[in-house]
Amino acid sequence: MYSSTLENEITSKRVKERSIGDAFYRVQQWRYLYRNGIEENGILKKVNLKQAADLVRVPKKTLEDYIQIFNKAELIINIEEISEKKMGFLRSFMKKNKSRIRKAMNLHKQNQREEILQQQQIQEVCENTQQNRGEDEYSNYNYSIYPSESSEFGTDDFQQDVDWEYSISFFNKPQNNPHFD
Rank of each mutant, 00 (worst) to 15 (best):
M1Y: 15
N8I: 06
R14N: 08
E17I: 03
R18L: 11
I20R: 00
Y25G: 01
G37M: 00
I38K: 04
G42W: 02
I43L: 12
L44W: 05
K46T: 10
Q51G: 04
A53P: 03
D54T: 04
K60Q: 07
K61W: 04
L63G: 00
D65A: 10
Y66M: 00
F70K: 00
L75H: 02
N78R: 05
N78D: 09
N78S: 06
I79Y: 00
K85Y: 04
K86T: 09
R91A: 06
S92N: 01
F93N: 00
S99E: 15
A104E: 03
K109L: 08
K109F: 15
R113A: 15
R113E: 14
E114H: 14
I116Y: 10
Q118F: 09
E124D: 13
E127C: 08
N128E: 12
T129L: 14
N132S: 11
R133Q: 13
E135L: 14
Y138M: 11
Y141L: 09
P147D: 03
E149Y: 13
S151Q: 02
S151Y: 03
F153Q: 10
D156K: 10
F158E: 12
F158N: 14
V162I: 11
E165D: 14
Y166G: 06
Y166A: 12
Y166R: 09
S167Q: 14
S169Q: 14
N176E: 12
N176V: 06
H179Y: 10
D181P: 06
D181C: 06
